[in-house]
Nucleic acid binder design. Structure first.
Lengths: 242, 242
DNA sequence: CGAGCTGTTGACATTGCTCAAATTTCGTGG
DNA sequence: CCACGAAATTTGAGCAATGTCAACAGCTCG
């Protein structure tokens, strides 16, 4: 709820009360709505703030509401009946979530940090599609990109070694989203346990792998949650790109 | 090429020369074009037949052409530089492939059997989208479903044991696509090596797992490529559904 | 009939997991 | 600002699941 309230999230972002002031508009599907029609967006969208650790929705819940992250970070995951968890993605401000597959959400979503969300009811989203056909276009593109990412992740999960998994993960975190360059200073805000569940490993293996990579000089770890990559080229060779 | 020629594929399907006679229309995105407008489809679509084993396109190739399978089976995969392979999906008649992510295909596609394809240039597809908005809708739905399937596969690859992987695989092959029932007679036309590369295992492990499951009475194997599931409920329990 | 796949089985090696414990970091309240 | 407890991270030791290498059997197709 908290319509128009500034985000309390600790990650610097805040959602503007009006879509035309949204700081992540360029990344969001909302950018497919012309700037001078953002009022139409405002009319349809609600807002919600959630504290770190809270659930946004759970696998199996009735769908019907979709979200755009305006501030904070989110993890998506699926569980097995005995509690084993696979994290399927980490989302950032501007990312979209909540399209359900057959009436129910296909995965669970949790706030990793404090989070501010833009909320659409699915019916309103359809209205938006009709009023601004480009939005559906944009959505299809996004879905397609996500599919490519998912396939890359299958390759990682099914065929890479622990070393390769961790290095691929770090490379991805360091890649610029616009050009195809890399930032050698990588921030890794999530816990080792989240990383493990994302890479299909155990916490212990992730930790040991970090240690081994550090001892080999492939990475430096100023703190547990930031990593420096002194030789990206070599890392790319080992990780098989990504 | 072979415009209008009956498919030589060994799997029973054949593509009609005209879309209104297509036997897999109901599964394809084409079903979003009203039946009395299929002539418009005909005007845009080309056809191609490929022999088993031939490549349809490879990861990195310039995109620009998309396909619908009218007969035969296709595998999608990604490779690591050293040749390790991850199969990301098996496709059947009616399935769609070839949307590229940023100008280039994100994965490779190969005919597993003889295959007949409907071919669209991407520009023509856009025309189709404009003429029949429902098609884009259908496409978005399909992309969304695929995403859900991909996430299910990540859970399998990252968190399931060999036993669970094989059983999940068999269950999926046995699931009806309409209702949520299962057919206990499962056909497994692909090689053990394809199965292994799909499940993130080695051929040997797949083979040994089949043997072990047979000895436990969980499956029966009339032949290497057909499996009978005498107790689906028990299998579901072990596999963690799917 | 023979070459070449495909599938199965065996023996052994190795990666990554499990269980356990020490250490460091972080958030909270005083 | 400091102290304390909880949580996160790291490390160690042993082990199990799965991979590797090798041999062999069964089928298919020319």
């Amino acid at each position: 709820m908290n319509r128009g309230a500034p985000a309390k999230a600790g990650h610097g972002g805040s959602h503007a009360s009006a879509c035309d002031q949204c700081t992540v508009r360029h990344r969001a599907i909302c950018s497919a709505v012309d700037f001078d029609h953002t009022a139409d967006l405002d009319a349809l969208v609600g807002h919600r703030d959630l504290a770190a650790g809270r659930s946004i929705f759970e696998e199996g819940d009735d769908g019907g509401t979709v979200f755009n992250i305006s501030a904070g970070e989110v993890r998506l995951y699926k569980l097995l009946p005995d509690g084993r968890r696979q994290i399927t993605g980490f989302l950032r401000p501007g990312d979209f979530l909540g399209l359900s597959s057959h009436g129910a959400y296909a995965y669970s979503a949790e706030a990793m940090t404090n989070v501010s969300l833009c909320v659409f009811r699915i019916g309103d989203l359809e209205k938006l599609f009709d009023a601004f056909p480009k939005v559906r276009n944009r959505m299809l593109e996004k879905a397609n990109d996500e599919l490519a990412v998912a396939q890359e992740q299958m390759l990682l999960l099914g065929r890479k070694t622990a070393r390769e998994k961790v290095l691929s993960f770090l490379l991805r975190r360091g890649r610029h989203e616009d050009d195809d360059g890399y930032n050698p200073e990588v921030s890794v805000p999530m816990t080792r346990s989240d990383i493990a569940d994302y890479l299909g490993l155990t916490v212990e293996t992730v930790s040991r792998t970090f240690t081994a990579l550090r001892e080999e000089g492939l990475i430096e770890t100023p703190s547990a949650h930031s990593v420096f990559l002194p030789n990206i080229k070599r890392i790319k060779d080992i990780a098989g790109a990504f």
